[in-house]
């Protein structure tokens, strides 16, 4: 007869603590999540200031103000966001196999990583929203300069600025990590299928809109959203992307 022990003997760490520790593991190298995005923010800001100075010294007085207002169409304030796609991929491709090596379950890893994304997005959004408000105050004081107050950020209140900054990050993290999770599970074939599926869905939506004559109503419907409503609604596709990522990851074997 074989007797099987059903309870490991040593001390256990509660699951919620392990999720927190996955967060700490993700944050061990703070340069990835915080350092580089804020370095990019700083560099982009310096470039915008230099551009503003060049406009001020090179454009004659009659057109100078309009030229400075032209910076309101700059995407420079969103420059760190492209890097966040790299962060989303690395959080899975680099940390997932490493975390499994630390005897962490896939569920603990996924929850810890999701919480990390939310905390980082909230932190960054708060920082950028504060800078947006400072820049708004500078403009109100009569000095025209648009780096953070570009695009829609100059038109909405602080809450909407924060929400749009937060949601954009979450969407980028969700999509990038979902792609990385699909790669972790199915490698190149998974990528091929996923990209093909994305192309087919986009084509299908365009075909539907054109063939049913609903393109204009759809555009009107989208334009009817407030900035706040639009970015709040973006959390739905972000949630779907996270769900796709988890669906791929929960049975992903460790390779290599």
């Amino acid at each position: 007869m074989t007797a099987i022990s059903i309870a490991p003997a040593a001390t256990r760490i509660p699951s919620r603590h392990r999720i927190t520790k996955v967060m700490r593991l993700q944050m061990v190298n703070r340069l990835t999540y915080l350092g580089i995005p804020w370095i990019i923010t700083g560099v982009a800001l310096v470039i915008s200031i230099v551009v503003a100075v060049l406009i001020s010294v090179s454009v004659p007085e009659p057109g100078r103000q309009a030229a400075l207002e032209g910076m309101a169409y700059s995407w420079a304030g969103l420059s760190p966001f492209w890097y966040l796609a790299v962060v989303g991929v690395q959080a899975v491709s680099a940390i997932f196999p490493f975390a499994l090596g630390f005897s962490i379950t896939r569920r603990e890893y996924a929850l810890g990583t999701l919480v990390t994304f939310v905390v980082i997005a909230a932190f960054n959004a708060t920082g950028w929203a504060i800078l947006t408000e400072i820049e708004r105050a500078i403009n109100a004081a009569g000095l025209t300069f648009h780096h953070f107050t570009a695009l829609w950020f100059s038109e909405v209140g602080a809450g909407s600025v924060w929400l749009s900054l937060f949601t954009l990050q979450i969407v980028i993290f969700a999509v990038a990590s979902a792609f990385a999770a699909v790669y972790a599970r199915w490698r190149a074939m998974g990528m091929l299928v996923l990209w093909t599926a994305v192309a087919l869905v986009v084509l299908g939506l365009i075909a539907f809109a054109l063939l049913t004559g609903s393109a204009v109503p759809i555009i009107d419907w989208l334009m009817g959203f407030t900035i706040t409503g639009f970015f709040a609604a973006l959390l739905i596709p972000a949630t779907l992307a996270f769900a796709l990522g988890w669906a791929a990851l929960h049975r992903a074997p460790l390779r290599g």
Partner: peptide, 23 residues
Amino acid sequence: VENSAVLQQMCFISESTRYPEGF
């Protein structure tokens, strides 16, 4: 598999461990 209570009692040191960049 996905059993935290068991995995916490295990340590697997693999020669193929790839450490994250910057670690």
